[in-house]
């Protein structure tokens, strides 16, 4: 069956099996930034943004997304306001600076959870950051540095130096 929705800023119409999950669809379409972790809804590694909310893509039927807006890690690049240069999202940038990444496997999901939080709540408390990331399990780094990174990203975004790049699917 055909499903139409906005994927990383572009309208797409994909042919899907009515019983398949968004995770299966995304990977088949060649977007490998979304990682397979547990495939049982427990780890958050396959997190994507659906209408701005972080959700496990292994727990969503693609067919239910008609008319929705979906973003994966490929769709979150930013543009520097002064130079026009395409750069990493401030959340990604601050994850790198804070050393919040080791093997990196959980990071796309965690970055998307953080972006989902900051878009709704630009100035979150530590408690709100912890709550927003509570579905994203990291088996190497721990969680302290990611929380620091999200705090720094909130400050960077508030500074106004960044604005979203034109999206590309």
């Amino acid at each position: 069956m055909k499903v139409q929705f906005t994927f990383n800023g572009s309208k797409v119409e994909w042919d899907v099996h009515p019983g398949e999950t968004l995770f299966e669809t995304i990977r088949r379409e060649g977007y490998y930034g979304t990682k397979r972790g547990c495939n049982t809804g427990d780890c958050g590694t396959c997190t994507v943004l659906i209408n701005g909310d972080p959700v496990n893509s292994c727990q969503v039927f693609t067919a239910s997304l008609e008319g929705s807006e979906v973003r994966t890690i490929e769709g979150v690049v930013y543009r520097d306001r002064k130079t026009g240069e395409v750069i990493r999202h401030p959340v990604q940038e601050k994850f790198v600076e804070a050393g919040a990444i080791q093997c990196g496997y959980c990071i796309p999901g965690m970055v998307l959870s953080a972006i989902g939080l900051l878009e709704k709540n630009p100035n979150p408390s530590e408690e709100e950051i912890r709550r927003a990331l509570d579905g994203n399990i990291c088996r190497c780094t721990g969680y302290v540095k990611q929380i620091e990174a999200v705090k720094e990203a909130a400050k960077a975004l508030a500074s106004g130096a960044y604005h979203p790049a034109p999206n590309r699917a």
Partner: peptide, 23 residues
């Protein structure tokens, strides 16, 4: 019936033939 689907999507139940999306 398909509500949010968070439990159903994890299932591989062979007997289910149709999904009714309440969206």
């Amino acid at each position: 019936v398909l509500g949010g689907g968070t439990q159903l999507a994890l299932s591989a139940h062979p007997g289910i033939e149709g999904l009714i999306d309440l969206g």
